[in-house]
């Protein structure tokens, strides 16, 4: 490797890899933890077994929240896509007065601390009877993932070559045909990716769920929170390890999607 003046120094390299290690290490130690035979948080584990996995997969106490999280995640990401996609088109592809202000407004749910939203939903949903219901959690999660979807779609929408739609029009396609035959197929990976992000966002959300999900529709993060907070249940390690596996897998898929999305450039 050429070491020009623009290349980083050795000290920089060492520091960088140390920081990367700091980022990665806590995630890595989870995996052996999940196979530990000990009954509480202990690292390095003394013996390994699959017992905690068995506990996780046979305990309704864990499986129900997992299922809830999946249901809420799927429903809320679908709802978010439905609500946010038209706005993503408008904000990225139309010129209108107050566009910037609107863009900022649409981003704020991400920037307002969850605890504020949590207590707000807690009292409003309380009087609407939406606390401890799927509807309540789905509504709340969708709201917070609108900016997530917007950000995820914006890059693709802006990278989508305007000339492609022009080409479709000049070839004789009606606006509907152009949307169906050109825009939609080209944006499909972006839709999937945005939906994915919204799902992950909902799946990971803990603060709001802590307040509004109650026992009935407890989500996985809420269950984990309780576990870490109160009982030091080693099954948390299993759930965490599974979530890391899923994350690695999901990221691999997302990377593939993103590569496929790259338009062919001359």
């Amino acid at each position: 490797m050429a070491r020009g003046p623009e290349a980083p120094s050795l000290a920089n390299a060492v520091l960088a890899w140390c920081v990367a290690g700091f980022i990665l290490a806590p995630l890595i130690i989870i995996v052996p933890m999940s196979f530990s035979a000990a009954s509480s948080f202990e690292f390095p584990p003394l013996r390994y077994w699959l017992g905690h996995y068995r506990t996780y997969f046979s305990s309704a106490d864990w499986l129900q929240p997992t299922l809830n999280s999946f249901l809420v995640g799927i429903a809320s990401s679908a709802l978010t896509l439905l609500v946010a996609t038209p706005a993503a088109f408008a904000v990225n592809r139309r010129e209108f007065a107050g566009r910037r202000a609107l863009q900022i407004l649409l981003l704020t749910p991400m920037l307002v601390p969850s605890i504020i939203m949590a207590i707000s939903y807690y009292s409003v949903f309380g009087s609407l009877g939406l606390n401890q219901t799927y509807t309540g959690i789905i509504l709340a999660h969708s709201c917070v993932s609108i900016p997530v979807v917007l950000i995820a779609m914006s890059a693709s929408l802006r990278n989508l070559d305007r000339n492609l739609e022009r080409a479709a029009a000049i070839c004789g396609a009606t606006p509907t045909q152009s949307f169906r035959l050109v825009t939609l197929p080209l944006l499909r990976p972006a839709f999937i990716l945005a939906g994915f992000f919204a799902f992950i966002h909902s799946f990971d959300e803990a603060t709001i769920s802590l307040f509004i999900s109650g026992r009935e529709v407890s989500t996985l993060p809420k269950r984990m929170f309780a576990s870490i907070h109160l009982e030091a249940d080693p099954v948390v390690a299993v759930v965490s390890a599974l979530m890391i596996f899923i994350a690695v897998f999901a990221m691999a898929i997302a990377t593939l999607l993103r590569q496929r999305r790259q338009p062919a450039r001359a």
Binding site: A20, I23, L24, P26, L27, I29, I30, M33, S40, F41, E42, F43, I200, F203, D204, A206, P221, M224, F225, I228, V236, A237, V239, S240, M243, I244, A247, V248, A250, M251
Partner: peptide
């Protein structure tokens, strides 16, 4: 590595630190 963190719940990462910093960690 940095990107992966966005896919992993902060609860998981918080949990990892309870183990690392715990009195048997």
């Amino acid at each position: 590595i940095c990107g992966l963190c966005f896919w992993i719940s902060y609860l998981v990462r918080t949990y990892a630190w309870t183990v690392i910093l715990g009195n048997r960690g």
